[in-house]
């Protein structure tokens, strides 16, 4: 026996226009509800949450509505002696939140507010002999962390601080039979991981190592009849893959291999008309608006600034700091 295809049906009355104003109101009010269940339960990833919120606001041209001073003060109080940043005050430093902090500082053109030399030292300290990166001092290895490490260094203009050759070797050792990538050597391909690895290879200028046709085939097969994308074969669609899959396709120059208009309608149908924000799939649970909005940006939606598929930041910001990874065509 096999597994029947899993998909959703989009209802006729689902939203089909972009509710930009509602989304920016949603983001602006998010931090105000500090005793909210989701807010408290997500403190462990606060720094990334702030980065997602600010990026989506910037893409919608509403960054000025966010409290820059308060956020910068928060970031500074999250930097640790070792140079790394934690998700929130008093939590432990981790490369995930170090990248988010550096991305926020870049958005605000405020990198000088923190000790960037120490950040570089921190990232350096995470590289292992085989070229991989651990997420923090406790030793978990994952290609996600390889991406975070080089993306952080690229934004700081210090890519050469680590052994890039070894780092590339490790990421390539995680390539699979389907052209995709997993967390560690031997791990199954996953769209989120493919985004990290293709982003990593873009930052390190090694995209020629990818078999773009093979990987492109796997990625475009993520599209389901509803138009939505899933993250692995035989899974349900989820709006977050409108970012992970689409950005990967853009990086390897195969964005035109999916039905753009159907995906656009799927993303729009995931909007919450009442409160703003997005669901992971029509009628589903909460997903961060960044994934939907950034996906729409890659599809060329009007009213949203162009996003960079590698660093998930507005192109104009990356032009300003001179970080423009080359993509495949």
């Amino acid at each position: 026996m096999g597994t029947p295809q899993k998909d959703v049906i989009i209802k006729a009355d689902a939203p089909h226009t972009l509710l930009l104003e509602k989304h920016s109101d949603y983001i602006e009010s998010y931090g105000a509800k500090k005793d909210d269940y989701e807010y408290c339960m997500s403190e462990y990833l606060r720094m990334s949450g702030v980065y997602w919120g600010l990026t989506v606001m910037d893409l919608m041209g509403e960054l000025q509505r966010m409290n820059k001073e308060e956020i910068l003060a928060f970031i500074k109080s999250c930097q640790h002696e070792c140079g790394g940043f934690s998700a929130s005050i008093g939590h432990d430093p981790h490369v995930l939140y170090t990248l988010s902090a550096v991305q926020i500082l870049t958005l605000f053109d405020s990198l000088s507010e923190v000790d960037t030399e120490k950040v570089v030292e921190y990232v350096k300290s995470l590289q292992q002999e085989d070229g991989s990166f651990s997420g923090d001092k406790w030793g978990e290895i994952d290609t996600r962390f390889s991406f975070c490490a080089v993306a952080t260094l690229a934004l700081l203009g210090k890519l050469n601080a680590v052994n890039i050759e070894k780092a590339v070797e490790f990421v390539l050792s995680c390539m699979n039979f389907d052209g995709g990538f997993g967390c560690r050597p031997g791990s199954e391909s996953h769209a989120g991981q493919i985004y990290c690895c293709s982003g990593f290879l873009a930052v390190t200028n090694q995209l020629h190592q990818i078999n773009a046709d093979l990987l492109g085939w796997w990625l475009c097969e993520r599209q389901l009849p509803s138009g939505g994308l899933n993250g692995r074969p035989e899974k349900l669609p989820d709006v977050c893959y409108s970012w992970w899959v689409l950005a990967s396709l853009k990086i390897i120059g195969r964005l035109h291999w999916i039905d753009r208009e159907k995906l656009r309608l799927f993303i729009l149908a995931c909007q919450d008309e009442e409160t703003g924000g997005f669901a992971d799939r029509p009628g589903g649970s909460i997903s961060h608006p960044l994934f939907g909005i950034a996906g729409l940006s890659l599809l060329g939606e009007e009213g949203i600034k162009p996003v960079n598929p590698v660093l998930c930041m507005p192109e104009e910001v990356l032009r300003r700091v001179g970080v423009q990874p080359e993509l495949l065509s």
Partner: peptide, 25 residues
């Protein structure tokens, strides 16, 4: 379930269930 669970079918909840969930949370 945690906030974002991939690959699971979400069943529409009734008002009563929503209220129970709110209290539970």
């Amino acid at each position: 379930k945690p906030l974002m669970l991939h690959g699971r079918i979400k069943v529409k909840t009734t008002l009563e269930q929503q209220e129970a969930k709110r209290k539970e949370r």
